[in-house]
Design a protein around this nucleic acid. Structure first.
Length: 520
RNA sequence: GGCCUGUUCGUCUAGUGGUUAGGACGCCGGCCUCUCACGCCGGUAACACGGGUUCGAGUCCCGUACGGGUCACCA
C-alpha cells in the first residue's frame, strides 16, 4: 500500500495531510533511506548542465573513450545542457595532431557533436601556472627543493619493504629564511600541494558516497621543476574554466577525485558533480586493451559496423533504460538517458552482440545505402583478385538480396564472391548430400530447358523448374538443391532464382556444365 | 601490498524485502521454407560463499573469496 501511494503521485497529499497517522508515516519514511545510492541533489529543471569529454590525443579513439563521450553527450542532450570538448595535449611527447583528428573523426562518425570550439589544454599553460601561483600565495602549496632522484630512491626502498610511500614533507618545514636562501642560490624546486587535515568526501552519482581520509593523500606535485603544471592542476583549472557542472568519466579516475576536490576547495572553486562509470572489459574481464583485438571505434567502422549500431551498443554497456528496450533510436536514448541508471560494475565488450545489433540496423537501411556500404569492401576484394567490378544496378540487387543476411559489411565480399567466380570446388558434405545417382540427368535436363528459355527472369525460371519437377514427379527441392550446389559450390545462398537472374544465362549454363564434368 | 571499488544465466542486463528471478545476445530444438538469413514459437542457463537482521533476503548489515581500479615531477 505504502509503495502504491508513494509511487502513485499522491505523496503530496499523503505527506501534507494532517490526517495521516504517524504510524503510516513511520512505515513509509524509511523507504526514502533505502535508496541504493544516495540521491543527487537534483534540481528539477536543469538548463545549465555542462559536461565535457577530455581525451588525451595519444592514439585512437578507444571504445571506452567513445562510450564516455557518448554518456556525456547523452546527458547534455537529455538535460538541454552543453557538451564541450577539451583536448588534453599537455604531454607533448605523446600528443600528435593526427591523434586529435582521429578523435574528432571518431566522434563525428558516431554523430556526437560538440557545442563550442574545443579547448586545447596546452594553450592554457599560463592559466595553469597562475593557478599554482595562487595556491602558493594562499598557503595551500609549498616549494619542494628535494631532488627527484632522492624521492624515487626512497619510494623504491619503501616499495621493497612492502610499504607505501608518501612524501615526508621535508620542505614543508623549511622556514622563510631557508626558502629565500635556496631561491637566491637558484636552486630548482617543484611545487607541492599541502594536503589539509581532515576527510574528503563526495557523493558520486554512480558509486555513492566516497570518503577518503586526507592522511591517505600524498602532498602531490602541482608544478614540476621545469615549471610546467601537472595534470591535476590542469583538469581542475580547465573544468572550472569551462564551467563544467558534471564530470562523467571512467572509474580509473576515482582515486584522483579527492585530490581534485581538495584543489577546487583550495582554489575557491565550486566542486562539480562526479559520476564514475565502470570500465569496459575484454572477454577475460580485464580492462579492454589492444591485445583484445579491435579497440578503436574507427577500426569498427573499417570493419563494416554502422555508427548507429556502435552507438546503440555502447549506450547499453553500463547503462540501461530500465525496461526491455535494446534497439533504440537516438531520440529514445536521449529521452531515456540519466545518471541514476548507470551501472556500477564493469561490462565485457561482446562483439557478437554488437554484430547482431549491426545486423538489425543494416536490415532497416535503404538498399542504396546498403550498397554504398558494401561497395568499398567488395571493391577491395575484387581488385585483389583482378575481377572487374559490378555496375551500380547489380550492386543494388546484391544489397536487396543480402539486406537480411549481413551482420557486418566486412563479410560481404566473402558472401558475394559466388557471383564473381565459378566454383573451384564443391563443398564435400553438400556433395554427398545433394548429388545423387540421378543428379547428372536432372542437371542435363535443366541445362537443356534453360538453354531454350527465351526470357531469363525470376518467374520464368521458377515456372520452368516447377514444371520440370512435376514432369519428373519430384518435389522441386530435389532439383533446387543439386542446382544450387552446381551454381554456387555450396549449400547456402539467397533464393536460387534470384541468384540465377544475377548470374545470367551464360554463367548458369557454364556452371552446370562444369558441375557435370565434376560429378563424373 | 595500502587505499577505493565491484560480484544476478557464458555475455549485456531488469530487479530498491514477498517474483514460477524478467528481457536481450549466444547456443539448442521447432515453425516458415528451395538452402541460408530474416521472422515467429519453445528450450538451456544466474542471484560468488558464510554469517546475521527479518515472519520472509537477489534485495539490508558484517565477514570471506574472487575480480577490477589506483598508488608518477603521465594524462
Amino acid at each position: 500500500m505504502c509503495t502504491m501511494l508513494w509511487r502513485g503521485g499522491w505523496e503530496e497529499s499523503v505527506w501534507n495531510s494532517h490526517n495521516t497517522s504517524p504510524i503510516v508515516r513511520s512505515l513509509c519514511r524509511p523507504r526514502l533511506r533505502l535508496q541504493r545510492r544516495p540521491k543527487l541533489p537534483k534540481v528539477e529543471p536543469m538548463p545549465d548542465v555542462r559536461v565535457r569529454f577530455a581525451p588525451s590525443p595519444t592514439g585512437s579513439l578507444h571504445v571506452g573513450g567513445a562510450r564516455t563521450a557518448l554518456f556525456n553527450w547523452l546527458y547534455a542532450r537529455h538535460t538541454s545542457g552543453k557538451f564541450v570538448l577539451r583536448i588534453e595535449d599537455t604531454d607533448k611527447k605523446r600528443s600528435t595532431p593526427e591523434a586529435v583528428q582521429v578523435i574528432f573523426d571518431g566522434l563525428k562518425w558516431l554523430n556526437i557533436d560538440w557545442d563550442e570550439a574545443p579547448l586545447f589544454q596546452s594553450e592554457r599553460l599560463s592559466a595553469h601556472k597562475d593557478a599554482v601561483a595562487a595556491l602558493l600565495q594562499n598557503g595551500s602549496a609549498y616549494r619542494c627543493f628535494c631532488a627527484p632522484e632522492t624521492i624515487v630512491a626512497d619510494r623504491q626502498a619503501a616499495e621493497k619493504r612492502g610499504e607505501g610511500y608518501s612524501y615526508p614533507r621535508t620542505c614543508l618545514n623549511l622556514n622563510e629564511a631557508d626558502i629565500q636562501a635556496k631561491l637566491d642560490a637558484g636552486e630548482p624546486y617543484a611545487v607541492r600541494f599541502k594536503i589539509p587535515e581532515g576527510v574528503t568526501e563526495f557523493n558520486d552519482a554512480v558509486l555513492g558516497l566516497i570518503s577518503t581520509p586526507n592522511k591517505d593523500i600524498d602532498d602531490f606535485i602541482l608544478l614540476r621543476r621545469d615549471g610546467t603544471p601537472v595534470y591535476m592542476v590542469a583538469v581542475v583549472a580547465d573544468d572550472a574554466h569551462q564551467g563544467v557542472t558534471h564530470i562523467i568519466r571512467g572509474e580509473d579516475h576515482t582515486t584522483n577525485t579527492p585530490k581534485q576536490i581538495l584543489l577546487y576547495q583550495a582554489s575557491g572553486l565550486p566542486v562539480p558533480q562526479f559520476a564514475h562509470i565502470p570500465l569496459i572489459l575484454g572477454p577475460d574481464k580485464k580492462r579492454l586493451s589492444k591485445r583484445h583485438g579491435a579497440t578503436s571505434v574507427l577500426e569498427y567502422r573499417a570493419d563494416g559496423i554502422l555508427a548507429e549500431a556502435m552507438r546503440n551498443y555502447l549506450a547499453l554497456l553500463g547503462w540501461s533504460p530500465g525496461d526491455d528496450r535494446e534497439v533504440m533510436s537516438l531520440d529514445e536514448l536521449i529521452a531515456a538517458f540519466d545518471l541514476d541508471r548507470l551501472n556500477k560494475s564493469g561490462a565485457v565488450f561482446d562483439e557478437t552482440k554488437l554484430e547482431w545489433m549491426n545486423g538489425q540496423y543494416i536490415s532497416t537501411l535503404p538498399i542504396d545505402v546498403i550498397w554504398q556500404n558494401i561497395e568499398p569492401h567488395l571493391t577491395k576484394a575484387l581488385t585483389e583478385k583482378n575481377i572487374p567490378l559490378p555496375d551500380a544496378e547489380t550492386g543494388l540487387q546484391f544489397a536487396e538480396l543480402y539486406r537480411e543476411r549481413l551482420r557486418s559489411f566486412r563479410e560481404a565480399p566473402q558472401k558475394l564472391l559466388l557471383f564473381f567466380k565459378d566454383p573451384s570446388e564443391y563443398d564435400e558434405k553438400t556433395v554427398r548430400k545433394r548429388w545423387k545417382q540421378d543428379s547428372p540427368d536432372h542437371l542435363r535436363l535443366l541445362q537443356q530447358k534453360l538453354e531454350e528459355l527465351p526470357n531469363w527472369d525470376h518467374d520464368r525460371l521458377e515456372e520452368l523448374l516447377n514444371s520440370l519437377a512435376d514432369r519428373l514427379g519430384l518435389g522441386r527441392s530435389k532439383l533446387i538443391h543439386p542446382l544450387r550446389l552446381a551454381l554456387t559450390g555450396g549449400a547456402a545462398s539467397p533464393g536460387i532464382f534470384a541468384v540465377m537472374v544475377l548470374l545470367g544465362k551464360d554463367c548458369c549454363l557454364r556452371r552446370i556444365r562444369l558441375a557435370l564434368e565434376r560429378i563424373k
